[in-house]
Design a binder for these strands. Sequence first.
DNA 1: TTATGTTGCGCAATCGATGGTGCAGGGACT
DNA 2: AGTCCCTGCACCATCGATTGCGCAACATAA
Lengths: 360, 360
Amino acid sequence: MAPDPRKKTTIYDLSQLSGASPSTVSAVLNGSWRKRRIKESTAEEIQRLAEEHQYSTNRQASGLRRSRSGLIGLLLPIYDFHHFSSIAQSFELRARRRGLCPIVVSTHRDPAEERASAEHLISYSIDALFVCGAADPDGVHEVCEAAGVRHINLDLSGTRAPSVVSDNYDGGRVLTEALIDAFPADAPLTVDELMLIGGREDEATRARVRAFHDVRSTRFGRSDADAVDLTGYSARNAKLAFERHYQARGRLPRAVFINSAINFEGFLRFLTDHRGDDYSGHVIGCFDYVPFASFLSFPVIMIRQDAESMVATAFDILDRPSEAPVVHLIPPQLVPPRTALTGPLDEIHSPGDDLRDRSL
Amino acid sequence: MAPDPRKKTTIYDLSQLSGASPSTVSAVLNGSWRKRRIKESTAEEIQRLAEEHQYSTNRQASGLRRSRSGLIGLLLPIYDFHHFSSIAQSFELRARRRGLCPIVVSTHRDPAEERASAEHLISYSIDALFVCGAADPDGVHEVCEAAGVRHINLDLSGTRAPSVVSDNYDGGRVLTEALIDAFPADAPLTVDELMLIGGREDEATRARVRAFHDVRSTRFGRSDADAVDLTGYSARNAKLAFERHYQARGRLPRAVFINSAINFEGFLRFLTDHRGDDYSGHVIGCFDYVPFASFLSFPVIMIRQDAESMVATAFDILDRPSEAPVVHLIPPQLVPPRTALTGPLDEIHSPGDDLRDRSL
DNA sequence: TTATGTTGCGCAATCGATGGTGCAGGGACT
DNA sequence: AGTCCCTGCACCATCGATTGCGCAACATAA
């Protein structure tokens, strides 16, 4: 009567109990029973027994047989970083909504680790792999290709598989225009008061810089290369850059397009060393979402990459028959000044528990 | 010659190629070959072939046979939240260091989802489960117990399994004392200038409040209940609380112990509505790590929960034979004012790429 | 020469679920 | 009665790796 303690019940147990064959039990429990013309009453009985004995299918066995696992992988450079953890969050949600089990692994932008992790995941017969921000997406591609595993690049495009990335050009354009438009008609921005700081020679930054120059040229008639200062994705270097430009002209440019959260942190470090200064009349743009930026005394306009849409698009691609290595561009969202701190989630929570009200 | 495209090589393939039996191949490849007295030269040959044909073991098959999977699960309330994503990060790192494959699933503090997710993970024959911040750890315990899966509570203790949690009393004590000591001898803090805002009736908050009162009594001779204002974990409610106390006395108490990052966000919202005010002479404590807090114009003392140690301890427990449901307390760390923004990681990165230099 | 090890490895069952195929029984129709 | 079809299900090989057991060949000891 009492189910064996510590021993999971199998279809064979249920077969015994119900008098049906294991294959019938299997069919009933995996939903293929109508196709196999099992009588409704038989199915009901087996389902009842399954419930009663807390049956749950052994996915290793099932996966072995079907050579699929219900697992889906995500390779991530690093976890603990807002943009990436947003992606992980969306990934997890959507994977689970499809009944898939998410495995997230961080590979530190190391090509060897990327390949090794991909291989490791593949040895679990994962059904698909998302490759986010990889240093070497095409290396991972090879591994997946060899194993016949569907895979999609996220956030950084590869040449061999479909990719979903932020539309950096569009984001850069929107942010640059927003910066210029933030200034009143009676004290308009001039061309050399507008700088871009941060980033390095990568795909994303190049697109943003291109947009920056394009808008700048369109709006001011010209744009020169030294308006852009690529510091790398480093808080310290960004801080030094701010320091430099500050020294050079005795104050900060009135409008700065900061290329990432990391670089924005450099800016904050700069600010802490210049507490006394007056920043009214300044407007900062940040190509990343940093909620606390809304607390600053001057306006900060942000671009929030739409992790949710990116992941959604990637899943959509999985649904379609496998496609050529197209790049899908996802427009990022503009976050107007002072709006980051109040989330739409504020309203829907019981006062006692609003963990979902994400703070940082 | 060329390995079949798209078809993974198995021990049977290698058996054919090497002339050895599948069991010998298996033994060689899983390392048990010495125990089975396989000749060294045979082993070498098989390993060579395995390499050549890019063999990798099918973990579903292996797992099925051994009824273990090499997977390890983590149940998390939510991802996108600094404390939890730190835990996820540490978990991922340590799991992989042990050759385990991490599966992180967020369950939104919903008891039913917690159980369901645990069952789902168990159906993959996970080797162990960490249960972090669960609403109903003992419910999850039952599920695990029934399946014979080792499990450990993290961050919130259960009564039925070993738990690893922050030492909230100690953290509360340290933070309260640091707040008091932050004031100079010539303008010392008085008892009713010290408040605690945020949190609700839960295990963690209770311990912190107890410490708060204890220190307050010790240092000031008395402590009254209305120095504590539990607002729930809500930014909005915390903001309202600050507003209330501000109105009541015409200014903020000079020292406030804020109970969490979420509540701290409420404080920031309060500040944005009171930009003009002078906060010199104020000191804020926050029982959570919020890097950007270091940017504020007044000192913010933070308590950083030691996710890394918590996870490490949890893994250590796994190594030991299963133990009684003991609670392990991990002392959190004090983050002195203005120190959050400069990480030790600043130094070790190439300028071009310091993603690991976590910003927020 | 016979008893006793030791070395090196193969045999075959097993883990649990799946799905192609086949087959018995019953009804309908010629 | 013979043919055909449909219903409802069982049989059994299979996925790939693991492991208890056994056995041949050779060495050593008595």
